[in-house]
Design a protein around this nucleic acid. Structure first.
Lengths: 135, 135
DNA sequence: TTAAATGCAAAAAATTTGCAGACGT
DNA sequence: ACGTCTGCAAATTTTTTGCATTTAA
């Protein structure tokens, strides 16, 4: 994957050390809440402000470089935008993973049934991951 | 559908006028945010407190009588719990509707791919409703 | 050099809590 | 009568804003 710096530039987001830090944290299918991100950033930049984290998350959301993932029962997590995909949530360990699914037929059916023109879908599957099942 | 009072009793939630009011508002596939619910309650009970609305929403969530629907870009809405179903969101008029879909094959596929035991799914489809399309 | 980002503090918004009085069972 | 609910105010939590200073381009 490209460097954090390149990714930022490609999305017309001005490069700062803090922003590179955020992108570094989120690279590799990672999903973090505001707090989790802030905690991790503090180890890289002890003087970072929570306000900076919020401002940067919002700036990146506006540029569609970041995506908010709303998950039942827990706080929103953020991820780097990529091709559409669903999410798996383990209710035991709290992990969130991406899963690539083809929802074309479901969307087609929904569209026909409802008359909606559907542009986006958000699917979260909640359950127990294999690691947590075996315990 | 049963009366608000009966519904509450069946879920072991003590009946009060405010709670009946909340249930009345949410009957009939309605989806309301905290604020929307508060505004509507104020016309029925001018002296109602926002804290009461929160407390009741939380009490009803705990009893699994109410469900929080997390929807991209907007505030959570609440609905009376019923059989599992997906949601349609119109990004023009803001309306949220239920839609009954069979996701069995998607869930089966996800389960096989990931090894997760999946117990719940949450699907929100965003687009434009037929009413808003024709304008 | 100039506009934008950072960090801090303060402000605003959202949610929860404590408590006295009222109410449901 | 007892325990719970209500409404209010206060407290907490979450998010945003303003501003002086620093920094990226």
């Amino acid at each position: 994957m490209q460097s954090a710096e390149t990714l930022l530039r490609e999305h017309n987001i001005k490069v700062t050390p803090q922003r590179m830090g955020i992108v570094e944290e989120l690279k590799g299918e990672v999903h973090l809440s505001v707090d989790e991100l802030y905690e991790r950033m503090k180890s890289k930049f002890p003087s970072i402000s929570l306000a900076t984290v919020y401002k940067n998350i919002n700036a990146m959301l506006e540029k569609n470089f970041l995506l908010e993932v709303k998950i039942p029962n827990i706080k929103s997590k953020y991820e780097l935008a990529k091709e559409p995909h669903a999410h798996l949530q383990c209710v035991k360990c709290g992990k969130v993973e991406d899963i690539k699914l083809n929802l074309d037929s479901v969307i087609k059916e929904s569209s026909q049934k409802s008359g909606y023109k559907i542009y986006e879908e958000s699917l979260v599957l909640s359950g127990v991951c294999p690691e947590c099942s075996g315990e």
